[in-house]
Design a protein around this nucleic acid. Sequence first.
DNA 1: AAAAGCAGCAACCGCCGACTT
DNA 2: TAAGTCGGCGGTTGCTGCTTT
Length: 367
Amino acid sequence: MGRGRAPCCDKSQVKRGPWSPSEDLKLIAFIQKYGHENWRALPKQAGLLRCGKSCRLRWINYLRPDVKRGSFTLEEEETIIRLHKALGNKWSKIASRLPGRTDNEIKNVWNTHLKKRSVAKKSLNSSADESKPDSSITSSFSSSSESFFSNERPNSPKTTTLGSEFNDQPSQETDKIEQDLEKQVSNEFIIITENPKESSVSLSSIESNIATSSQDVACKAEQLLASPLSYLGSYDFGSILEEVDKPNHLFEIPWESDYDFCKLLDDDNFGSFQSNEVQLSEFPASQNVILEEEIVQDVKVTQWPHDFENKFGVVGEIKESNKDHFLPKNYEVGPEIDHTQTFDLDDMRTPEAELDFGYIQLWPSWS
DNA sequence: AAAAGCAGCAACCGCCGACTT
DNA sequence: TAAGTCGGCGGTTGCTGCTTT
C-alpha cells in the first residue's frame, strides 16, 4: 500500500466545476480516437485543463455512449430497491445490474427518491403493524418489502436490523440474494458494463445490431432506437475500435488551441444545432438533419429527437421559455479562445472521423 | 413579485485495493 | 518489501431550478 501519495493533480492548475460543451467535445473526440488507457495523462493529451479523475467521471457518468438518461422506470426503481437491500450502498454493483445507469445516478436516485419512498412506506407499515400484537421491526420490514420484492420468500427469516435497509449493511442473506439476482438479472438484461473492455466490445455488439437493422430497418427501427446506443447511427464505431491500435506516443494538444472545436460550437455548426432544436418542433425532422443527410437513415432521422429525449431527457427539459435558447443546463461560456492558434485535428479527420463529428454535432447531452 | 426553503443532480473529495517499480 | 501510481468507489458538497410562503 502506498503512502504519502501525491495528489492526483495540481488543483491550482485544473479547471473545476461544470463541464463546458467544448470540453465535452474534446473528451469525446479524444476517447473516440485513442480510448482511455491512462486517465491521469488523458487531460493533457486531450488538451483539457481538467483532473484525470474529473475526465473519467465525466465520461463514465455522462458522455459514455451507452449511458441511459432520463427518468428511471418503475422496474429500474424496484430493481434498485431490491439490490440495495441485498448489497447495501454498493452503488457500482447495483449499477452493473442496470445497463446504462451509472453508480452516481443510482446513488442520487436512491438518496432523493427511493430512500424517502422506502421510509414513508416503512413508517406506514409500521403504524399499521402497531395494531398487531406480534408486530416487530423485522416483520414490518418484511411487509414493507413485499410489494417490491414479490419473489421473496414470505417466510424467510429476517435478521436485518432497523436501519440496515438504508445504510451500508447488506442483509446476512446477501450472498444468496446476490446469487438469485445473478440468475434473475442476467435473464433480464444484457450486462454491458461488466465487460472488461467496456467501450470497445459493447460497442461492437451494438455495431452488429445496427448492421442488422440496416437489413430490416422498418422492423428493427423501434427496437434499435429504444436501445441505449441506438442514437449512434452516425457514431464511428470503427474509430472506437481503434482504441486497441492507438499509438504509443500521443500528441499533446495545447490548451486553448481548440479552434476547430470552438468552430463547431461557435460558428455555423453549433448555431445550427441550436436553431435546429427549435425547428424540430416545427418542421419535419428530415429537414433538420445536421450535416448528416447522407449518413443517417431516414428512419433514424425522424426518430432522433425522441431518441434524444429518451436517452438524455433533453427535449423534455427544454423550458418553453427557453426554446429559442437551447443551451445546456450547465452551459457556461468557455475561456477566451485564442483563435490565432490552430487546433490541428487533421489526423482525426479521416473519412471515419467525419462520422465522429457528426456524432459530436448531434451531441445533446449538455442539458 | 420576492424571498425562503426544498429537491435534484453533477461534480468533487478522500480513501482503498490492485498493480507496478 | 516498501514506495509509488492508478482506477474505482462511496460520501459529500454546492449549484440550479422549482415550489411554497
